[in-house]
Nucleic acid binder design. Structure first.
Lengths: 126, 126
DNA sequence: AGTATACGAAACCAAAAGGTTGCATGTCAA
DNA sequence: TTGACATGCAACCTTTTGGTTTCGTATACT
């Protein structure tokens, strides 16, 4: 077993609608579990599990205060999403790149599967 | 049963790493299933299922040509992701909004759970 | 000290996800 | 027309996911 096997990544974390609502709720306010769960039709324990998954993905931060555990959103991991999305930006500034895409599609089969770079590729600078 | 129950949304579709690779592979090239599956360590059928999920989410388009089915990426649904992300943009242009956030956090408990708007909120225009 | 509150952990469950193999069908090539 | 190729579909299997209830324990209240 690898030690740093990040079991839950951002993509998976935000896949669930409940977790997206959780993030939204915790955007501005730090809240304890019971208060949070009052906003959802599921049990407190279920909410707690969702919070754990978000936590593993780094999207929330927990702070124990007395008997409660307060949660707050942590936006940093969203950068990975942003970066992933930026790979497809070429589809939106379609003026110049439409031609480029066509040309690329003409090339012989290669498919090197290098994956979207994790740092934003500022196409605007072209 | 509601007729338009979109079983798979974008968030779910991109949650799986294999599907993200699929999208990447099909970004520029239209490819038939067998050719696609040569790039993955799983069976052709498994790839086919992933393609279906992507298709349901609107992220790929299929075109039957003779005996093959060619797939190509369809970027439009990513707009929803983009839009969802934009809700958290306030965290990145942190100069002015840091204060605003603090103030909001001060307000009495309300939590109306209105969800991120689906149309991009151009904060740049402030 | 005794009770109420906040939470996590464990055991359990049904359904969904991700994968496999085998088969049926449509299409292309001799 | 006969065979090879491309694909989808069905049946099946295992693991993960999202949820529940019950219980233990730490903290707070009086």
């Amino acid at each position: 077993m690898s030690s740093s096997a990040a079991k839950h990544d951002v993509f998976q974390a935000i896949a669930d609608p409940t977790r997206r609502k959780l993030l939204q709720l915790l955007t501005d306010q730090e809240m304890p579990v019971t208060a949070i769960s009052r906003h959802f039709p599921i049990s407190r324990t279920a909410v707690s599990k969702h919070l754990r998954i978000l936590s593993e993905a780094g999207l929330v931060k927990e702070q124990r205060v007395g008997r409660e555990t307060r949660y707050r959103m942590q936006p940093e991991p969203l950068a990975e999403l942003k970066s992933w999305l930026s790979y497809y930006d070429r589809f939106w500034d379609n003026k110049l790149t439409a031609l480029k895409r066509l040309v690329e599609a003409e090339q012989p089969e290669d498919h090197s599967l290098t994956g979207p770079r994790l740092v934003e590729t500022k196409r605007d600078e072209l």
